[in-house]
Write a protein that binds this DNA or RNA. Structure first.
Lengths: 191, 191
DNA sequence: TGGTTCACTGAACGGTGTTCAGTATGTTTG
DNA sequence: CAAACATACTGAACACCGTTCAGTGAACCA
């Protein structure tokens, strides 16, 4: 039943966004009464959280294979590409995971476990880079934040349609993301 | 009257966010009935839009003086600092302007005029940088996107509380932003 | 057969954005 | 001065929302 609800919720959440999606919509889709959903989830946020986790599971699944790329900087570049790719192809999951406000209210910070794991992948690869002589003298915390931010910035502008600012130039979002990433990596390679 | 409504709306919007803020709240604050607000604004989105514009007005007001910094790369750095500063000190305006989803639905893209102006400030300073030999061979559109994204990324993670991922390390958001910016500028200087 | 448990319902509560017939206060005109 | 019109505002109503909970019916066990 939980799975049935989550499946419908996923469709509706991702199609309409957190606030436009309603418990009644979800109930209608699975042909149950709204009350039923509350037998399986304490509140709307809890459904959100379950999807949040699924997003991170997918995300980590795509990241994990890259741990086998041995050259650290190559690994870092590959991880970045996968990150951007994940956002492009799972716009709504990305939004849910990194932009939406809804769930963080309730101080459920312990549930960010998977987020920390993803961040650790990044920090690890940066440490490995340092072992090969890159990023000398840089603080891993600050550096990881800088890199994460640069990628997140592009993805967030994309997800929230701020790339339209470039539309009149005939530039399509995918192009922007690809070139933006390329430029950033070039900068990163020189630091 | 419009001003009275906007003033109350600003307080409530910025305190509660777009979706938590209600027309009834605003009406209550100014001691009028909810219906009255609809005599001055077609819908909730229109109030949002008015605030959106005020945000950009403030933003541009802080940017404008920097046009007098003559050395282009110094001007770029100063603009970046002002951008980050604006986001830190006007978190809610920043959210409204660059993250919230609400208003963009209605294809009111012509109203992004001020956004374009801000973006042009960035592109102009980049062209000036190129004239002094920096950023050779780089496309202004892509480069401006890369830079905007890097700053936006930090601000967006800050606004939507994703910096908490660093909290257990005793790192405060302001620190992260400052060092993240510093690192990014260092990278930019080398490209 | 009676009692208990379980899954589910749907009306109800207090909230939301939005509309609109109605009111009450000027202002203008005959 | 009175009648006609204009303006400013109200607040009940509509259709939605998340959430709760008394009640229903079927399944199981004694």
């Amino acid at each position: 039943m939980r799975a049935l609800i989550l499946d419908a919720a996923k469709k509706i959440f991702l199609a309409k966004g957190y606030y436009q999606a309603s418990i009644r919509n979800i109930a209608e889709m699975i042909e149950y009464s709204p009350g039923t959903i509350y037998l399986y989830f304490k509140e709307k946020d809890e459904i959100f959280h379950a999807l949040h986790e699924e997003g991170f599971r997918r995300f980590l699944t795509q990241m994990q294979p890259l741990q086998h790329v041995s050259e650290p900087f190559e690994r870092l570049k590959a991880m970045g590409r996968v990150y951007m790719d994940f956002a492009s192809k799972n716009k709504d999951f990305y939004d849910l995971m990194f932009i939406m406000q809804a769930p963080m209210n309730h101080e459920k910070e312990e549930e960010w476990e998977m987020g920390h794991q993803a961040l650790n992948y990044l920090k690890d690869v940066l440490r490995d880079c340092q072992a090969t002589g890159r990023f000398q003298g840089k603080d891993i915390e600050y550096l990881s934040f800088t890199i994460w931010s640069a990628l997140h910035g592009m993805c967030a502008l994309y997800c929230r349609e701020r790339c339209h600012a470039y539309h009149d130039k005939g530039l399509e979002a995918g192009d922007l993301m690809a070139h933006g990433y390329e430029y950033f990596i070039e900068m990163l390679a020189k630091v």
